[in-house]
Design a protein around this nucleic acid. Structure first.
Length: 467
DNA sequence: CACACCTTTCC
DNA sequence: GAAAGGTGT
């Protein structure tokens, strides 16, 4: 008995429930479909690059164990039923997606196929737990993390499934499959050198990266992860985003090997489940504020400032360093994401949706649930958000989390000649010191586009209008 | 009067 | 999380 396995953001052979189930029954036709009808949140440019190489390595991995990946472009709702007929397959399996547009598509596809007599089975392959089932006693969804976390902890997280070691695929008509290169995932003009230098998009690289984190850096995670010049953070998000590694495998590996030291990291994995839970139960919060008060918030329409933020030319070195790291490598350290996002929404009063769209396009690890929740958290409009009056002072944050200025020197090299202390705020330095360092404000590094104190007061006043 | 340290306010 | 407004030395 053969099964068709619809592959999506689960490009791996370990702990892959749909593949694992199918392999018990016999032959597998694994199918990846690149959807042509792009909508705003389908895939960003940086992640598209990542996906290209992740797909190539996944394809090779399947071939190495005897199988074959079928690649298509188009509408899954049309392609999948046709493939089932063409290959005389009567079972289709996939790991569930929680993106609202996919839920609609998947449900109608499942119903249609079921009515045609096809066996349809779906699995949890993305999260620690199927979050649709985690609810408050009154039946409503959690809006606050801590009670969600407690409910989550009471449940048993399934053990990872064995890695697929062998696969037989039906004999494939060669013209049926496209090559990864045909999908047009790489940019027309090559801007991806920085991404190539930093990332290896493959399942084996993801596992290697994770093992090295657990072995060498996890013990520093709790106290060190907030320092962007260090690598005490896990940096697993790009792999998780496309399912190159299983979150359940990570969870159980850490429980087994690290015991109590692993708790802060495991907690972050539960935050990821929480983000998916929010997206599932409150899908309109992808674009709209969770807190209704913010519907009336008066944001600024300041295209010029938005461009400067994106380019890393705000005049606040820590913000600029983060934005340039993002542009160069498709990634930004989480602490710096918070600082840069706070700066956009509070200092510049630019709507968080604009920031979310930029991150979506530029991050290799972009995920709809995390992205929306993170931005709403910073903006203060989220359910369990940081209060609006919590406005980061970028200079203080910089001194605290990049005390030697190493991160700034790496990404804003024009400031490298400033001292460890002065580098956080060039505009506060004496002209003689700037001269000595060879820095001319607004010539080789911008003066701040907004002054911190005034911007803070303006933001609080703006919030007063809706409170 | 500078400063370290603590508490309250921002809501 | 940061700033302001205390207190004491």
């Amino acid at each position: 008995m053969a099964s068709l396995v619809w592959i999506r953001k689960d490009l791996r052979l370990h702990d892959h429930p749909a593949l694992h189930y199918g392999i018990q029954a016999g032959e597998i036709l694994p199918v990846y479909i690149h959807e042509e009808n792009h909508h705003k949140w389908s895939i960003g440019s940086a992640q598209s690059w990542f996906l290209h190489y992740a797909l190539q390595s996944f394809q090779k991995r399947i071939e190495d164990i005897g199988g074959k990946l079928l690649i298509k472009i188009g509408d899954p709702a049309k392609i999948l039923p046709k493939l089932l007929k063409d290959y005389s397959i009567n079972t289709i399996l996939w790991n569930r997606s929680y993106e609202p547009t996919n839920i609609v598509m998947d449900n109608s596809l499942a119903e249609k196929l079921h009515n045609e007599g096809v066996t349809v089975k779906t699995f949890e392959g993305t999260l620690l737990l199927p979050i649709t089932k985690i609810k408050k006693k009154d039946g409503n969804a959690f809006k606050v993390f801590t009670p969600f976390y407690k409910a989550h902890q009471k449940m048993d997280i399934p053990k990872p499934l064995a890695t697929i070691k062998q696969m037989n695929s039906p004999v494939m008509m060669i013209e049926d499959s496209l090559a990864v290169n045909d999908l047009g995932l790489l940019p027309a003009i090559k801007w991806t050198d920085g991404l190539e230098k930093r990332w290896s998009p493959s399942e084996l690289a993801a596992i290697r990266h994770f093992n090295a984190f657990e072995r060498n850096r996890l013990k520093h995670y709790k106290n060190g992860r907030d320092f962007p010049s260090k690598v005490y953070h896990a940096e697993m998000s790009p792999y998780l985003a496309l399912g190159l590694i299983s979150v359940r495998s990570m969870y159980h590996y850490i429980v087994k090997n690290a015991e109590a030291a692993g708790e802060p990291f495991l907690r972050q994995l539960v935050w990821r489940d929480f983000a998916y839970s929010l997206m599932f139960h409150f899908p309109n919060t992808i674009e709209k504020p969770m807190n209704k008060k913010f519907e009336n918030f008066k944001w600024n329409e300041d295209q010029e400032a938005f461009i400067k933020w994106r380019k890393g030319l705000t005049g606040y070195p820590i913000v600029d360093a983060g934005m340039r790291e993002l542009w160069e490598t498709g990634y930004m350290h989480n602490r710096v994401r918070m600082i840069a996002a706070s700066f956009l929404t509070k200092h510049l009063l630019i709507r968080w949706q604009n920031g979310a769209e930029w991150f979506w396009d530029t991050l290799v690890d972009a995920g709809l649930a995390n992205n929306s929740m993170g931005w709403q958290w910073v903006a203060g409009s989220g359910a369990d958000a940081s209060p609006y009056f919590r406005i980061f002072n970028p200079t203080l944050q910089s001194k605290k989390f990049d005390p030697n200025g190493d991160y700034i020197r790496k990404w804003v090299p024009e400031l490298r000649t400033l001292s460890d202390d002065a580098i956080h705020a060039p505009h506060e330095q004496s002209s003689s010191m700037l001269e000595q360092a060879g820095i001319i404000l607004n010539e080789n590094y911008p003066a701040p586009i907004v002054e911190h104190k005034a911007a803070r007061e303006r933001a609080l006043a703006r919030y007063n209008e809706i409170k």
